[in-house]
Design a protein around this nucleic acid. Structure first.
Lengths: 150, 150
DNA sequence: CTTGACCTTCCCACGATGGGAAGCCTCACT
DNA sequence: AGTGAGGCTTCCCATCGTGGGAAGGTCAAG
């Protein structure tokens, strides 16, 4: 099976399959005489596992752990659960941050006339943050590390 | 005022101040004879504006627009409001995605015994996604908690 | 005048992904 | 058997915002 076919069957782009191989997330694929990578159905199975985990927001590092446990027939489900729970906590932290931003901005937008005049409470708040919003200020807690994540 | 002092006063790291200058987000700073950048209080003001906007999750591109409007005394507040509202929509889209992930994972975690045995519904779902996780209804959630005993 | 803390530029790294070029390989159709 | 399209290979570059670090110049306190 070509990389293109494995890509279609798994939902992982060919670029990413090569990347995962290069970074050691997945073992090096077999090669045909031509140099083409050759994938088995079980390889595709693994790729779909990865794809699904990515869809759930796991990082490649986390997927590495999950894959190890997946392959380990003597694993303890507690280990899997711990990783998943840690990821949920992480997701909820990010959700809370985004909600805080949205709430603060929502208040400001509600206060903005949105007409042809230049007076704008949104700009005013960016200039001089007021703490009279229904949401605590963002500048207090260590949000910096959590912010830049896409 | 040195870049270090401007950094402390604005909450923007010196690295990022140089980066913003380099990418044209902020104008080139004045230089002393020594080559050191020199910042005025109004520069610091601008940096705090940027910092605040970053904390609210605006991208640098969006901040560029906001800065233009900020400087434009004849701006229309509708323009600011439009940008802010678009950003809120974007935030809420991301929140919805994350919540979807967290909900799915939450259901799986609830179904996982988390003990020493290898059987794990989390791994099973990654392997072969079931579609009953997307809408964690009361019944499924309740059953999920009842389904595992330890 | 020395010393340590600061500043300068320049390069590199991250994480996950995509774009694209140059050069082979394969398959199906003439 | 030839040929053309499209797939594969590797390699390099870009993203976005941020930090690390090296090599070298500057400032201020002792």
């Amino acid at each position: 099976m070509n990389i293109g076919q494995a890509s279609k069957a798994s939902g992982v782009s060919a670029k990413m399959i090569r990347y995962y191989e290069q970074t050691g997330l997945i073992p090096k694929a077999d090669r045909r005489d031509s140099g083409y990578r050759d994938y088995s159905p079980s390889d595709v199975h693994m790729l779909r596992f990865i794809r699904r985990a990515r869809d759930l927001g796991f990082s490649v590092a986390e997927i590495n752990e999950l894959l190890s446990l997946w392959r380990d027939k003597a694993r303890q489900s507690a280990d899997v659960k711990r990783i998943a729970q840690a990821h949920i906590d992480q997701l909820q932290q990010r959700i809370a941050n985004l909600e805080q931003m949205a709430a603060t901005l929502g208040t400001l937008v509600d206060c903005c006339a949105g007409d042809g005049r230049p007076d704008c409470p949104i700009l005013a708040d960016l200039e001089e943050p007021g703490d009279d919003h229904d949401v605590p200020s963002l500048t207090t807690a260590g949000i910096g590390r959590l912010r830049h994540r896409h």
